[in-house]
Amino acid sequence: MNFNYSDYTQEDLQMLYDNSAEPCLGEKKRNVEQYLQLIIHPIICFVGFVGNSLVILTYALYKRTKSMTDVYLLNVALADILFVVALPLIIYSEQSNWAMGNWSCKLLRGVYSINLYSGMLLLACISGDRYLAIVQARRSFRLRSRTLIYSRLVCVVVWLLALILSLPTFIFYERYHPSPSEFISLYDNETFDTPTQYVCFFRFDSNSTARLIKTAVPSFQVGAGFFLPLLIMSICYTSVIITLLQAKNFQRHKAVRVVLTVVLVFLACHMPYNVALLYYTITMFTPQECSHGEAVELTMIITESLAYLHSCLNPLLYAFIGVNFRNHFRKILQDIWCMGKNYMSARRTSRVTSEMYLSTRRSVDGSNNEYGTSFTM
């Protein structure tokens, strides 16, 4: 039987003891998890941090959020950058025995959950905005003329919904040390070292609450965090593709490829993990062989890392794919290069030159590109 001590209450442990013959050590799972945490996840976090920081920097210094898509893209970048900041802190806390205490357990896991939900729902909002802009262009003119009002309101609703869906994580996650009696009662005829590490996981006072929350939380994650955005994106982008194909224009056909790329990358990154999570949820309280349980957990660990990769790809798929956004990004690189040259020159003369150059450049760019939008198709 596959055993994970953080998944069970005292009543579960006694029931497992009555039916278990041999514990599952999960050595392969721990090795794979450690490899991903120490090598793969830091790379994902670094690339995601750089890409999303450039998006935020571009909006903050060079481009005003004039369209609904711009507002959504900025919020997606914020969600992704909070995610890639929270993930290494979670990994560090796990490696350091959650030394920062119970508050770090609740806060880091809660922030992780909020950004998971908000990021996925905001991608659905972007697909809805593309539907309005392309399929319902005439009908949605008045709505989109009040861009900042509606888009900001939608973003507030998304973040609040993500917070509500994450409340069980804030409430039931705790840093705790499994009691030695749990392991003695389970393995009274075996010789095992009692774990000395703290865990940060769900902890409940009753068996009924444990079963309810442990079933509800992953179910909502799969439903509201994946299948709902996927349904919205499928409906909206299918209508967009049909409309673009009817236009019979080269640029429109190029836009169809962009839409298909966005959807396929979304599916490739998130579908495997959510299918594995759904299967794990259905079979959570069913007795399993060690090999089968370990295979399921290994699948979840690997596919979860694949889902993390989407935070790196979002800037490329949504922001940098737009012509206007790429132009602003080029200006960032040019200004950084010119600022460096002027700084080297200023060491011999004065620092005034670089400051005047940046100020002039920013004002000129703002006046010429004030109404540009990202994700241009």
Rank of each mutant, 00 (worst) to 15 (best):
R203P: 08
R203I: 12
R203S: 15
F204I: 06
F204V: 02
S206P: 10
S206I: 04
S206G: 09
S206F: 06
N207R: 09
N207P: 08
S208T: 15
S208Q: 15
T209G: 11
T209E: 15
A210H: 07
A210G: 07
R211V: 13
L212D: 10
I213F: 04
K214I: 11
K214Y: 09
T215P: 07
T215H: 06
V217T: 03
P218M: 01
P218Q: 01
P218H: 02
P218G: 00
S219W: 01
F220E: 01
Q221K: 05
Q221Y: 07
V222Q: 00
G223C: 05
G225Q: 03
G225M: 02
G225H: 03
F226W: 04
F226C: 04
F226D: 01
F226T: 02
L228I: 05
L228H: 00
L228E: 00
L228F: 03
L228R: 01
L230P: 05
L230S: 07
L230C: 08
L231E: 04
L231A: 09
I232N: 03
I232Q: 02
I232V: 07
M233N: 03
S234T: 08
I235F: 12
I235Y: 13
I235W: 10
C236M: 10
C236N: 06
C236L: 07
Y237D: 09
T238I: 08
T238D: 08
S239P: 14
S239H: 15
S239A: 15
I241C: 06
I241H: 03
I242L: 10
I242G: 07
T243Q: 10
L244S: 10
L245N: 11
Q246M: 10
Q246Y: 09
A247E: 12
A247R: 10
A247G: 09
F250M: 14
Q251V: 09
R252H: 14
R252G: 14
H253L: 10
K254Y: 11
A255P: 12
V256H: 05
R257A: 15
R257W: 10
V258I: 11
V258W: 07
V258L: 12
V258H: 11
V258M: 13
V259W: 04
V259P: 07
L260N: 14
L260F: 12
T261Y: 07
T261D: 07
T261L: 14
T261K: 13
V263E: 09
L264G: 14
L264R: 11
F266A: 06
F266S: 03
L267T: 02
L267A: 02
A268L: 10
C269L: 08
M271E: 13
P272S: 00
P272C: 03
Y273N: 03
Y273V: 05
V275A: 01
